[in-house]
Simulated scan of single mutants.
Amino acid sequence: MARDFVLLKIDTERHTHGAEVAKRLRGDRTGGIPWSVVTDATGGELVASDGPEGNIGCPVSPAECAWFVEMVRRGAQRLEATDIARIAAELEEHARPLRR
């Protein structure tokens, strides 16, 4: 993922101006945490973790995992299909034991 993504965690409680940055990115959307967004180089939103069934949080269900992979696809520039398939497989391996 590092070829196409810079991962940045914003802690709204502990980071200076974290709440303001989160508000700018999330706007009025509600839902649980974690919440994530993929932006372009200028900070414009490409896709957020608000999937068809709501915020995917830490994806576990098949629908949540599918939306996360869609987020990766939408943000990918240099990742190849095989890279994205490997990310999807690793996410599935992580999520499967967490499903009820």
Score class of each variant (00 low, 15 high):
45 E>T: 12
22 A>L: 01
4 D>V: 03
42 T>V: 11
98 L>Y: 11
50 D>H: 13
80 E>N: 15
4 D>H: 05
100 R>G: 15
58 C>E: 14
99 R>L: 13
16 T>H: 09
65 C>E: 14
55 N>F: 09
31 G>T: 06
86 R>I: 08
31 G>M: 04
33 I>Q: 10
22 A>K: 06
53 E>C: 02
17 H>S: 13
85 A>K: 06
9 K>H: 13
68 F>G: 01
23 K>I: 01
30 T>G: 07
68 F>I: 03
78 R>M: 10
82 T>R: 15
59 P>A: 06
16 T>Q: 10
22 A>W: 00
11 D>E: 10
70 E>F: 02
88 A>Y: 05
91 L>T: 13
86 R>K: 15
2 A>Q: 15
38 V>S: 03
74 R>K: 12
50 D>P: 05
8 L>D: 09
21 V>A: 14
16 T>A: 12
10 I>F: 05
38 V>E: 02
42 T>Q: 11
6 V>F: 11
88 A>N: 06
38 V>P: 08
29 R>M: 08
63 A>Y: 00
79 L>T: 01
76 A>W: 05
37 V>I: 13
17 H>R: 15
82 T>M: 12
100 R>W: 08
63 A>D: 10
70 E>R: 13
90 E>P: 00
20 E>N: 08
13 E>Q: 14
87 I>K: 00
78 R>N: 15
2 A>Y: 11
37 V>Q: 05
9 K>F: 09
4 D>C: 02
26 R>K: 13
25 L>N: 01
39 T>V: 14
1 M>L: 09
28 D>T: 06
46 L>N: 00
60 V>G: 05
66 A>V: 06
89 A>G: 14
57 G>D: 07
53 E>A: 15
50 D>V: 14
82 T>H: 14
5 F>T: 07
71 M>S: 01
25 L>H: 01
19 A>N: 05
47 V>R: 10
12 T>C: 07
2 A>P: 06
76 A>V: 03
7 L>N: 14
24 R>Y: 08
54 G>S: 00
37 V>G: 04
67 W>E: 11
37 V>A: 10
91 L>K: 14
5 F>C: 08
79 L>C: 06
63 A>Q: 09
99 R>C: 06
84 I>F: 03
12 T>Q: 12
63 A>E: 10
33 I>E: 12
25 L>V: 08
30 T>F: 03
14 R>V: 12
79 L>Y: 01
31 G>F: 02
77 Q>N: 14
26 R>P: 04
89 A>H: 11
23 K>F: 02
35 W>E: 04
31 G>Y: 04
62 P>M: 09
88 A>I: 06
61 S>P: 02
60 V>W: 02
97 P>S: 12
21 V>H: 06
77 Q>D: 13
73 R>V: 07
27 G>A: 04
7 L>H: 14
55 N>H: 00
3 R>Y: 11
51 G>Y: 00
46 L>D: 03
9 K>P: 03
40 D>W: 02
57 G>C: 01
18 G>K: 04
